[in-house]
Nucleic acid binder design. Structure first.
Lengths: 132, 132
DNA sequence: ACTTTATCCGACAATATTAGTCGGATATGC
DNA sequence: GCATATCCGACTAATATTGTCGGATAAAGT
């Protein structure tokens, strides 16, 4: 049904939350999870992932938490989505080679065309376009 | 990962196959399934679905099979995909009302914007654009 | 030093979705 | 009537997503 995963949704919600804070103020996983009713552990992983990718900063220890690091205007949405939920494509056939159809498939080219159109949508969009 | 279901792929492959035939010539499920290594029963259902939606014609009995009915230039891709795999959207929140986030969600609007962009891609595309 | 609270991380379990199967019906040409 | 086609609902299997658990490391406060 061509949908984004919850992890991406949670990531966006969290980023938007962080944007409402002052540059230096930290938000903990718990704080965000409770504010939006998101499972803590799952949100935690998503935040960790974003921290590893330098979208946000992580500060450990008590009084720790996360704060925005990157300039959202510079984060491409294709990259962002792929960072969180892996390769972005209409079909599997671009990633794994073992497709029984492979040789006989008559829609490889057209599917590829559509694929590009979809990717283009996200390529021409930055995180800033979404989080405001 | 934002992908189409196999059913849609199979549908497109089948339609493309039918296009290679003369207007009056029939192709059976078995013939198509074997040509592209698609599970017969699954393809059968997809073809039946398309027949019900008057994209193709079904002829029963031995010597029966399917042939193209609709003008592919007139079939919008959004409609086609939704016909086969149901509602097309980036998130569930547009369909079911029971989302725990609902009230507190801070990304409803932005997600909706992206959603429209994606739908636009398929809206501005007909079956003919894909099957050639 | 110890306790508390935070990030960090891998492995696991539950759930939902998709893919594929099966049994039996109806239609029709021979 | 037999063979072969579409038709259709219900079922099972496979896969992917979502959520949970246990335990580690980091650092602030006492």
């Amino acid at each position: 049904m061509l949908k984004l995963t919850r992890k991406v949704e949670y990531a966006l919600i969290a980023l938007r939350h962080l944007q409402g804070k002052k540059r230096s103020q930290l938000s903990s996983t718990k704080e965000i999870a409770e504010a939006y009713h998101i499972p803590v552990e799952l949100l935690a992983k998503t935040l960790q992932l974003m921290a590893r990718n330098e979208i946000i900063d992580a500060v450990q220890g008590p009084l720790g938490g996360y704060r925005i690091k990157a300039d959202f205007h510079e984060i491409n949405m294709t990259d962002f989505i792929e960072m969180i939920e892996g390769p972005l494509g209409l079909t599997d056939c671009h990633f794994d080679t073992e497709c029984v159809q492979a040789n006989t498939c008559n829609i490889k080219k057209p599917i590829n065309k559509v694929n590009k159109s979809i990717r283009a949508v996200f390529n021409n969009m930055t995180l800033a376009d979404i989080t405001g």
